[in-house]
Amino acid sequence: MKEIVNEETVLRVPKWTLSKRKKNISFSNIFLLVAIVLVLFIIASALIPKWIAPYSPTYMNTESILSEPSSKHWFGTDYFGRDVFSLVIYGSRDSLIIGITSVLIGSLIGGGIGAVSGYIGGYIDHFLMRVIEILMTIPGILLALAIAAALGPSLMNIVLAVAASSIPGYARVMRGQILSIKKRQFVDASRSIGTHSWKVFVWHILPNSWSPLLVMGTIGLGTSILIGSGLSFLGLGVIKEVPDWGALLSQGRGYLVVGWWMSTFPGLAITLFVLSINIIGDKLRDTFDPKTSRMR
């Protein structure tokens, strides 16, 4: 059926390096190295911000508000007189929490629905896909907005809102992937030697179908931070002692003329994080995906 063919084309994962046979020193390797270093640094910031940040993120120096980036304040100070660099370092924790948990929840539920739907097929597939279709007609941000408005602003609710809005996407991708793998020869082979249906599913189909979710997830990490940022732009964000990157961006937007650094650095943090995760994710996929490793 045509629909499936298309889904598969769309959902095929990009390859950072298609020509692996070529010389190893290329842009991609340098980038990979930089990316790994960056991600490790961000993770370290989230775990042990105290050791990295030069100031306390809540310390308000009223004597030097809105000062430019300098050797004293690498990323300048914000309108409270807080050190932006320290804020970015400390803010990484909540940003990662928003990104990672919402992606995990969204992809597990969405992926689960998609896998079940795709593997079992029939009426269940039909029903689940109808539900997903319904969810897709309501734009994600709208859903997130409604959920955030309903539950009130808190970190967990934002995670839930973002996760809920990403479920349909994961479900569709997973289903498409399962459908295409179901038809592969090795699945048939395994079935023909009498392996149990669920065993086939767990041992052969699932391991072969996670890579598109990985790609979606790496993008999702960034977008969920951004949706959270959008919510705080619309006034549904959380006010925490240590704001996450998205909230920092939103706070600094009115100060672009007098203090560009306030929003630019948190924005760069999001971009570099997403970028690095994507580079690493692509590499992981190329290395571990059974499909591509077979091609070697």
Partner: peptide
């Protein structure tokens, strides 16, 4: 946000609820 920091100094924890 500022009052939260100021009251911390005297041992009052401020929870900010935006609604």
């Amino acid at each position: 946000v500022i009052i939260q920091q100021q009251l911390k100094k005297v041992g009052i924890k401020v929870e900010i609820n935006i609604t």
